[in-house]
């Protein structure tokens, strides 16, 4: 194995600074004791974290986002798993078109999806409802679930199922005892990635929320476009810490590289 030279390591250090810098700044700013943004902060204070508690707007929005993420990731997983089984292992005409359809939300610009959903939901009079949000989010995040489940379905040695059949297992037993457990990492990974994507989603959501269903990213966005104060930094810090915790959890049980890049060695 050729190792990295001195310049490579310097490049890597600068790159790390570039990636981490903006996040460190947000976290740093949130600890300021003053009423304005300053970095590095002149002291360490938790006053802006305490301020979150006085702003039920943010807390309500966080709850909406949490519930929305869980509901939409679950809906998406329920429809994507059987679809992945069909696409991954059956040969049928229309298979590729179907796969392209299910992955298309990745290619259509999100702003286009946003107005399309807005148009539909206003016709159905579901605009701003939680159900509407869940269904629209399910569409956006299904590609992520599908991809991860598909890669575990395709990566599975089918003779394992044949072995179970030859030992007398019925179709349902094969699915429950063999197939499901073997594609479980893909399902769990897909669900988590879908949850995070839904939790962070802004562009589509901004078109289809109303004040009672405002999500955290939308709340943050409308706050930032009006003013940037230490409060927004402290809320963002909480979001960063929550995501990092979730990330470490995934990395522990699934591997972040596998989650984001598919099967790697």
């Amino acid at each position: 194995m050729i190792s990295n030279g001195r310049y490579s390591l310097l490049f890597n250090a600068l790159f790390t600074l570039f990636m981490v810098g903006p996040l460190v700044v947000v976290i740093g700013v949130s600890f300021t004791p003053t009423g304005y943004l300053e970095f590095p902060p002149s002291g360490l204070s938790l006053r802006w974290f305490a301020a979150i508690l006085d702003n039920p707007d943010f807390i309500d929005a966080a709850w909406v986002s949490l519930k929305l993420g869980i509901a939409s990731a679950t809906v998406s997983t329920i429809v994507a798993v059987p679809a992945a089984l069909a696409i991954g292992r059956e040969k049928f005409s229309g298979r590729e078109a179907l796969q392209a359809l299910f992955l298309s939300p990745l290619t259509v610009p999100t702003v286009v999806l946003g107005i399309a959903f807005l148009r539909l939901l206003s016709v159905l009079e579901l605009n701003g409802t939680f159900v509407g949000l869940v269904l629209c989010h399910a569409i956006i995040i299904t590609p992520f679930v599908l991809r991860l489940v598909l890669s575990s379905v395709v990566g599975m040695d089918r003779s394992i199922e044949k072995a179970a059949i030859s030992l007398g297992a019925s179709n349902w037993t094969v699915f429950r005892r063999i197939t499901m457990p073997l594609i479980m990492p893909g399902i769990v990974g897909g669900w988590v990635l879908a949850f995070i994507t839904s939790f962070d989603e802004l562009t589509v959501t901004v078109f289809i929320v109303n004040p009672s269903t405002t999500t955290l990213p939308v709340r943050l966005f409308s706050h930032i476009t009006q003013t940037t104060d230490p409060l927004i930094a402290s809320v963002s810090t909480v979001v960063i810490l929550f995501t990092v915790a979730l990330m470490l959890l995934i990395n522990r049980f699934y591997g972040l590289d596998r989650l984001l890049m598919g099967e790697t060695k």
Partner: peptide, 22 residues
């Protein structure tokens, strides 16, 4: 990998806020 890919999972709004402050 956590450092490089991790930000992908953090809200774009939050990451952009960092740049606004910078």
């Amino acid at each position: 990998l956590l450092v490089v890919l991790g930000p992908l999972l953090i809200s774009v709004v939050v990451r952009t806020l960092g740049w606004a402050i910078l």
